[in-house]
Write a protein that binds this DNA or RNA. Structure first.
Lengths: 125, 125
DNA sequence: CGGTATCCTTCTCGATACTG
DNA sequence: CAGTATCGAGAAGGATACCG
């Protein structure tokens, strides 16, 4: 009976810093890219094929941002022609459980959300 | 030794539907609003004061979206003048643990992220 | 292969003014 | 109090072309 007694005793406040980090790391493409890279390291064009809806530009931007935040590593392999492999870092790995939880939540609650949307849209006319 | 054996056996794929839902529900303002409403129900201007950086327009849009997706309820109290109370729904409540987990992750890993950024920015010149 | 650079359209978002 | 309406700046994002 610990959850009804008080609202939220030690809940951390959302700051601009929090928001900014979560925005950079959990935006639509980042989520997708991290999800793929958690499974296995991939090359640039492999990622493109794994996420067919992303454009080259957006994928590049996403990877650079994730690299800057320490979530993925960029490894240049000196073959002919050049190959670039993207690999999740230990820090990036710490997001895996969260991403899985988000996907599970989404899967589990999608029907309820869709019913809510239908109800809302019906009332609007 | 179950986590090194195979990459990801039953990992759910991210679909456009997943992404869209998470985008609508975990964007910057939604996260903030849900976080506040998980603690207690609030009126419109109370929310504005609780989240001082949000504009009225964005707050309205965020609340409508959350309402449409079944995350919050909008209760019109017929006082003089009118009062509108926003309350989290049971469906919205299912996000609380996730949001807490996101905030905890963000708090815990912020230092590592900042070091990664500093390293990245230094290398760029 | 793994990108950059450029253009251009779309959408977001803040500021401001007004309303029941 | 709790919004809506409108405008305009700026960012996001796609299409396309080109490069080492």
């Amino acid at each position: 009976m610990k959850e009804t007694a008080h609202p939220a005793p030690d809940r951390p406040q959302i700051t601009a810093t929090h928001r900014e980090l979560l925005d950079q790391v959990l935006d639509k493409w980042s989520l997708h890219v991290l999800d793929e890279l958690c499974e296995r390291s991939l090359r640039f064009n492999e990622l493109r094929r794994a996420i067919p809806v992303v454009t080259q530009k957006s994928l590049t931007a996403t990877l650079r941002r994730l690299e800057r935040n320490g979530m993925v590593e960029r490894l240049i392999v000196n073959t002919r022609p050049i190959a670039v492999e993207y690999r999740i870092t230990p820090l990036g790995k710490t997001l895996q459980d969260l991403i899985d939880a988000l996907l599970e939540w989404s899967t589990a609650n999608m029907p309820r959300v869709e019913r809510a949307r239908a109800r809302f849209d019906a009332e609007e006319g």
